[in-house]
Structure formats: C-alpha cells, structure tokens
Design a protein around this nucleic acid. Structure first.
Lengths: 219, 219
DNA sequence: ATATCTCAAATTGGATCCAATATACAATAT
DNA sequence: ATATTGTATATTGGATCCAATTTGAGATAT
C-alpha cells in the first residue's frame, strides 16, 4: 500500500467548525463585547441547524468567552479593568514556568521559526497581523514545553484579553516596545538561559499589563 | 412585600442539571476512567432527551473531564502519572497566590466555618465524606480571595485529580497528615500570616503530590 | 402624559425524527 | 481454520418541530 493515509474520522464536526469560527471572531474583536449571539442567525450563516450552534456556544461559555442567561441567550463576555488585571497576573505566573521548561527543549529549527515570527512581527505594518504574529511568536516558544495544562490555561487567558492586547499594540510605542522585548526573550532562549527567559517573559507580561491599565484608565 | 425573593429565571436547565450530575459522578469516581457515557442511557436516567445530555458532555469535554471522538462518543478522561504531576504543580503555583490574597479578607465568621470543616474532616470516619470535607475546607478559605479566575482554575485542577486524591486520603496516614497540615494552614490564616499560609498550602500540595506519585509507582 | 396591561413576534430550550458512522456477527471464499 | 465481506444493530451528529419565556408595541385606565 502506497496510499498516503489520513484519518477521516478526525474530520471536523459542524459544531467544532462553528466553535472555532466564533472563538476567532470574539478574540479578534469582530464581535464586540456585549453583542448578542443569535443562534438562528449563526445557524443560517454556516448553513446548519441550531443544534451545533448551541453546542458551540455552550463550549464558549465554559471557556469564559461568552456569558449566557436562560431564555435570553449568549453575549460576548467583557472584562472589568480589575478582571483584566487578574488575567495578566495569571499569565505572569504561568507563562514564565512554561518558558523555563521549554528552553532546554528548543531545537534550532524551532528557534529559527521563532526568530522569523519575531522579525515578521516587528516588520509588519498591518495592525490585524500584529495580534496573530505576536501570539504565534509566544506559542512557538511555548510549544517546546511539555506542560500541556499550563499551556492550555495560558491559551485561554490570552484568548480572554486578546482583543484588548490588540488594541494596546496599536497604541503609541506598544509595538516598538513589544518587538524589543521579544528580541530579548528570544536571545535568552538561544543562549539557553531558562531563568533569564522566564524573568523576561514575566516582565514583558507585567509591562503590558501596566501599559494597558493606564490606557484603560485614561479613557 | 415580605416575600423572600428568589430568581426564578435562574432555575436550572436540564443540561446544567445533567452537567452537574455527571461532573459529580466523575470526580467522585462513580464513573470510572475510560468508561463510556451513552447519551441515550443518560437521557433515560434523567428523563430527558439527548439534546441536553450532549450539551452537558460538550461542556465536560471543554473542562477536560471527558474525551470524545466523533461518532464514538465520550469516555471519562484519565491522567497519566506525568499529567497528574503537572496538575499538582499547577495547583502548587496557583493556590498559594489565592490564599495569600484571601488571608487579609477572612472574616471571623469565615474562619469559624473553616475550623468546623477542618474538625469535621479529621473526625469523619466515612471515606466518602473525606473528599467532600477536604474540598470544602480549601474552598472556604479560598472564597475570601477576589481572584476569581485563579479560583476557577484551581477548581478545575482539583476536579481533574479529585478521584486520585480521594484514593490517596484512604492510604495509610494520608488522612492524619492532611488533618495536621490543615490545622497549620488554618492557624496561619487566623494569625493573619499570609506568607506562611501561602507557603504551607504549597507544601501541603507538593506533599500530596509526592505521596500520590509514590502510591502510583508502587501499583 | 404616564403607568399598567394585553398580546403578538422573536428567541431560546427541549423532543422527536432522520442520516452518518461504528461495531459485532454471520456468511462466504480461500 | 482464517481472512474477508456483507449485514443488522447500536450509537452519535444533525434537522425539524413544539413548548416555554422574553420583549416590545400598542391599548387602556388613571
């Protein structure tokens, strides 16, 4: 048998497609905070029935991306400044540990990919791309870690504040600073200095928190 | 109006009832690892249709309590020793922070309740009760913290290893040691020593991890 | 004019039905 | 006897229908 195999049973169900699409729309800010998710409307958009939509919404609720009330439906979840701060603090606790365990496992190949993301991030002129590349840079580094639950939690935490982080990147010097910090983190990883990388990630996250909270308090 | 009010709109939906019941059955070990969850069977048990059951299962999947495969259904999720270890490490990172912020907010009333749970835990002869009281003790203390996301994550982490922790409590001196450590933690909270309480919680969790991993490696 | 009370439309929650897939077992061929 | 194929049954995924609840516009009373 020379056929290239592929696991057909792993094909996506309607509900998972809807889930992925809604999640993306929420974290990218295409659906704004407080906006209602109409099951019927979404079902029509995806040319399916409301059943998969409801399953997707219940999963989003479990992830904290939407809030639902019985007989009233789901709305995109928002965060108070205090909640935003807590999410950043959570990241500042979790992600340094991820990096610390990831550094010893980083192959040259992975570091090369990370450097590409890093460069692409700093070079990009497209605000929509910034969020993607920023995230891809972090996730590339984290992927070398074996702490899958830590990564799961970091991913969810990032999901919840992604919209705000994207807004912050657009702020004056948000991009420039992030790009500089990314380079420092990458250097530490390349040198194999896990403690330094860990510390820099922490500073990077706490710095972003400060910057975002200031931004929020001014508006 | 002298009527004691109650939010009728907050009455539980069928899917949330099923979710709660399944979650409880899983973490208490009534459903064992790898066991299949048949939608039809569960629907009959709760005298409902499969729709709410499916929503409940998809939420359980998002919580990591079951694993599902398309067209094959859901089975109760298990953990490898390595995964178990990671969950404990996660707890050892998160819960000390929760306690640290909780201690300054603990009312006398709350401390009294915590002490009751603590005493009841040490006094109980019923293994099934141990798990409940152990958890209630921790959650009582944590409830004084305002870190709701941290608590959310700790709750989920505890959910995932609850079965194993219960098994561990039954082990020789598992109960006795836990009871002793609880007292130490409670004392620190009553004295208002947040740093000490935080450190003791960390030791408590890491000690439980060691004890459980030894138990696992011997069987 | 304002507040209260219908009542129809919109929306969600749940039940029932059909389609797609997996599984187990019998039938057949080698 | 073993391996393969066909087939019936069990089970899940999804569509459609009905019931329960909310919402908002208009009617009515004060």
């Amino acid at each position: 048998m020379k056929l290239k195999s592929m696991d057909i049973s792993a094909t996506a169900s309607a509900s998972s497609i809807v889930f992925d699409a809604l999640r993306k729309a929420i974290i990218e800010g295409q659906l704004e905070e407080g906006e209602a998710l109409r099951q019927d409307e979404i079902a029509r958009l995806f040319n399916t029935s409301r059943i998969p939509v409801r399953e997707a919404i219940s999963r989003l609720q479990e992830q904290g991306l939407v809030k639902t009330k019985r007989y009233k439906g789901a709305v995109v979840a928002g965060l108070s400044p205090k909640e935003t701060e807590e999410i950043f603090d959570l990241r500042a606790l979790i992600e340094p540990e991820i990096i610390r365990t990831a550094v010893p496992n980083m192959s040259d190949e992975l570091l090369k990919v990370a450097r590409q993301k890093c460069i692409a991030f700093s070079a990009s002129k497209n605000p929509n791309e910034w969020g993607d590349l920023n995230r891809e840079f972090h996730e590339t580094l984290y992927s070398a870690s074996e702490l899958k639950f830590f990564i799961e939690i970091a991913d969810n935490a990032i999901d919840r504040i992604e919209r705000q982080v994207r807004a912050q990147l657009v702020m004056s010097n948000g991009m420039e600073r992030a790009g500089r910090e990314h380079l420092g983190i990458l250097d530490a990883c390349e040198k194999g200095d896990a403690d330094l990388a860990s510390k820099l990630i922490r500073d990077h996250i706490l710095g972003a928190k400060q910057s975002l909270l200031q931004h929020l308090s001014r508006t």
